[in-house]
Every structure is written in structure tokens, then in C-alpha cells.
Amino acid sequence: MTGSTPADGGAAGPADVRRDWKLPRTVSLGDLGPLADPVSEHNGQAIAVRPLKDHPGWLAKLYRPGLLPEDADRLDLLISAPGTLPEADRALLYAGTCWPAARIQEPGNPAVGCVIPMAPEHYRSELRRGGFGERRFVEIDWLAKSDESIGGIGLPPPGPAGRLAACLRLTELAAILETLGLVYSDWSFSNAFWSPDRRSVYLIDVDGCQPEKMPDVHQPNWADPLTPPGTDADEYTDRYRIGLLVAKCMTGRRDAHAFHTVAASPWQNQPAVSEVLLDMLLATDRERRPSAAQLNRALDGGPYLRPSPRPARGELPPLPPPPVPRPPTPGDAENGDETEVTTPERPDSDLQAVGWIVVLTIAVVLLFLVTASH
């Protein structure tokens, strides 16, 4: 993966930027003309992301030295992949991602970087915090918070309809990647922008996609329990993470709260959505996780036809313990922070053991006092 950076979105470019400039599949730095100052540096595998002065709306994403010829082949595969899609899916992919348009090469280095489009301006919003405003890209992180928190920074609260629309777009993009046989793995809060006004999302860092499998980089709170450490991420890892991201964005709850909210009752009277998500998140066999296309269909009001009966509730892994909210701090209101602390309940057997230890301790003390008095 090439690292998560809002600079993949950059400043706004023309809405029809892909039609304005027809790039060859392979270019040199000289072909691109002068580069502007970096909008991001030393982030993941990218040493810099720089706007192209002569081509507004485009960025050069330059990689660290040491990439192999296989990386050039992989970039070529990604650049060509949209051409294999139906026109509607290709349009969705281009509109919703910073899909690489050309590979940058130089003598002796076949993978200097790639050319990517900038994110549209409507993914920026004015965020108000502590009496100050800042116009910036809105990460999808905010959808995993309450409508009250979102409204508190000056964004229009999405409500159920806005959350549903964003999750529909997310799962459309995930389904297209799955159709192409590509693993993204980086489904998380920082790798997508959200437009509250247009109820859409924009996926970044897609130039890190790999066919079939890729190294599974550890992401706190996004670890797949059925992808052991040290093994590769694959389509089933992607299914878990897109399910987790959708659960958090739909419910506005973070961490284990999302599990409990989805499991407690059908979400917004859509039982198929809850069923798909529970199978994605709680399946004991990773290959039985529903696909992104199945989740998208359920979100769109369609049915969910489970290929085999779900195991009885007692055979499913237990839900994570419900988080316990920590006491609020003065900065929470302005930051929309909803940090939670998970405190597992002490099993009854542990409580009984503690009780017996107390009783035995008192007995020993009493015996010592009686013996001393004689």
C-alpha cells in the first residue's frame, strides 16, 4: 500500500478532467511539465505528491526508490483495468476514486510514480472547531459519529438517508474492485472522503491495490480476526473490513458499539442489511462472508439469499463487550470526540473466586487472633 494521505485528493480539478487530457499509459517526468510544490511528503510509499502546473486537476504521486519491475506491471494492470468494465461501472470508478491514469518511468526506474486525478472540490467543507473555521477534506471518519457531533462542526447531519447513500456508494466501489479481482485492504476512516451535500464518497490510495492478495498491514481497530498476523489480505479480508466500515458509518457508532447496534435490531427496518453485516462480521468461516455486491444489494432494498443456514446463535463467536463511555473532557464538544473504553464484565466464576479468597483471609486472621490470646 502507498499510505493514507489526503493529498491524494489535493485541490479541486475540473469535473471533466479525465476528458480534458488524454494521457498515454506511460510517461516520463519531462512529459508532465513543471511540478508545483508538494501537497504531501514522506507518507507511506510516496515521497511526495505534487500538482502538475500545466495540467490543472492532476497530481504526480512519486514513490520511494526501490520498487521492482513487478510494481510497474501492477500499475499497468490497474491503469488498464477500467477498460474491462461496463461503461456504467467504469464511470462510477472514475467518479469515485483517484484511479491512476499513467505510470511515470525514467531510465533505470520503471515505477517512479503514477499520475492521479485530484478529488473534486465538493469533498471539502468548512469545519468549525473552537470558534475557528477551516476548509478541508471531510474524511468518512465523521460518518462514524452521531448526527449531533457532525452538526457541531458545521456539517449538515446526514440522518439515515445520508448514511445510506454514502454506504451505497462505498459498497458499489467495493463491488467493482471485487469484480476486477483486486484487493484494497485499506478500508478505514482515513482512506475515503465524504461529501455531506452530495451524499457521496471518494476513495483514495487505490494505486496500492493488488490482484488476489497483498501484505496485510496492521491497522488498529480494523484487524480481521480470521486473517492471522503474518498472512496476506485477500478478498475475504476486504469483505470483513468493508462490512465493519459500513456498520460504523450506518450506525454512527464506533468500535464495538457498531456490532451491538447492528445485532440489536434490523437497521432502519431493513433486516437484510443487518443479516449481511452480521454474516460479514461474525462468520466463523471467512469464505462464507457475503460479497460487497450482496451488501450493496441489501442496502439498495434487495433481498439477501444466504447460501447456507447461519449457525445457531450459540455457535457464533460472541459479540465484543459493549464499550463503556469515559467521562467527558472539555475538548470533546468541539472535536466531536466519542472515545470509548471497553471494560469486559467479570465472569461470575471470577467473582465467586474472589469471594472465597476474602472468606479464607478473614478466617486465617481470626484464627491467628484466637491463638495469640491464649
Rank of each mutant, 00 (worst) to 15 (best):
G3D: 02
G3A: 06
G9R: 00
G10E: 01
R18T: 11
W21S: 03
V27G: 13
A36G: 12
G44A: 05
I47Y: 05
I47D: 10
P56H: 14
P56C: 12
P56S: 14
W58D: 08
Y63E: 04
R64D: 01
R64I: 03
P65W: 03
A72N: 09
P82G: 01
T84S: 15
P86G: 06
Y94P: 03
A95K: 11
A101Y: 05
N109L: 13
P117I: 00
G130W: 08
F137M: 13
A144P: 00
I153K: 09
I153Y: 08
G162Y: 01
G181E: 13
S185K: 02
S188N: 14
R199N: 06
D207Q: 09
E212N: 07
D224W: 00
P225V: 08
L226F: 07
T227F: 08
R241W: 00
M250K: 05
F259S: 02
T261W: 06
V262M: 15
P266S: 04
Q270F: 02
P271N: 03
D279P: 01
L281P: 00
A283D: 06
A293H: 10
N296G: 07
L299Y: 10
R306Y: 04
S308K: 05
R313D: 13
P320T: 13
P322A: 12
T329D: 11
T329S: 15
P330V: 10
A333K: 08
E334L: 08
E334A: 14
N335S: 09
G336S: 11
D337R: 13
T339Q: 09
D350S: 11
A363N: 10
V365Y: 14
L369G: 06
L369H: 06
T371M: 04
